[in-house]
Amino acid sequence: MNEQPPGPEQPSRVIDCALAEFSALRGELDEIGRGQRTVMSLNISANTAVAAFVLSQRVAPQLLLVIPYLSVALGMLYQTYANHARYMGDYINEHLRPIIVEKAGDNRLFGWEQHMRTRLYQDSASRLPMRAAFTLIVPMIPAVGLIWSIPYLHPAWYWLAWCGGLTLFALQIVSWIKQSWDFVWI
């Protein structure tokens, strides 16, 4: 490793490097946010299409069994995006912020990640709209698909598919609860 002796421009170079890395991470976080919105839109659109086909009686009602599988798969992708964003926020807060604070000599810099975690995530009033939306979209879509399909489970393999969907649905609920807990109690 080629370390240069400390000079007057050294803190400036370190700050420039940290800011460049921060800028790249913020760009990636923006992409993650777009990905999350796309996945949520796809979840709503695809499951609505399945339900519309069943309601129009163009397909067998057993097609409702697809909803839990589709919703869980897209929900897992959404959670992957959320976890990746959180890890990036952790990196910014735990690695880049101390560098900037030390080199700039001001502990007020790069405080957004900590502010968000202490204020936004733990303030139940500010989380209510997001939690209400997730409660309606994430677990309700597969739950309705599972409940709605019960009268149409004539052959035994439909029950097997239904049980598989229920199992995935339960695992997704546990995963969402754990993730919500992690975001609140950080």
Rank of each mutant, 00 (worst) to 15 (best):
M1A: 08
E3I: 11
Q4I: 12
P5Y: 11
P5N: 15
P6E: 13
E9P: 08
Q10L: 13
R13V: 09
R13S: 12
V14L: 10
C17P: 00
F22R: 13
S23K: 06
S23V: 04
A24L: 11
R26N: 07
L29T: 08
E31G: 09
I32Y: 08
R34M: 12
G35I: 06
R37M: 15
T38S: 14
V39E: 07
M40I: 08
L42C: 07
I44D: 01
S45T: 08
V50K: 00
L55D: 08
R58G: 11
V59W: 02
P61W: 06
P61T: 07
Q62I: 06
Q62W: 10
L70P: 00
S71M: 03
L74M: 12
G75N: 09
M76A: 09
L77S: 13
Q79G: 11
T80L: 13
N83K: 14
N83G: 14
N83T: 12
H84P: 00
H84L: 14
G89F: 07
G89N: 15
Y91E: 07
Y91N: 05
I92G: 01
I92W: 05
E94M: 09
E94I: 02
H95A: 09
H95G: 00
H95V: 13
P98Y: 11
I100G: 08
I100Y: 04
I100M: 14
V101N: 06
E102F: 04
K103F: 06
A104D: 07
A104G: 04
D106W: 07
D106T: 06
N107G: 12
N107S: 15
F110I: 07
F110E: 07
G111E: 08
H115K: 12
M116F: 10
R117V: 03
R119V: 15
Q122I: 03
D123K: 04
P129M: 12
M130F: 13
M130D: 05
R131P: 01
R131N: 05
A132S: 02
T135C: 09
T135F: 13
L136Y: 05
L136M: 13
L136E: 04
L136R: 03
I137D: 00
M140H: 04
P142R: 03
A143Y: 01
G145E: 02
I147E: 00
S149A: 14
S149E: 04
Y152M: 04
Y152P: 00
L153W: 00
L153F: 01
P155A: 07
A156I: 10
W157N: 08
L160T: 14
W162G: 02
W162E: 01
C163T: 02
C163P: 00
G164N: 11
G165K: 01
F169N: 02
V174E: 12
S175L: 10
W176M: 07
I177F: 11
S180D: 14
D182V: 06
D182Y: 12
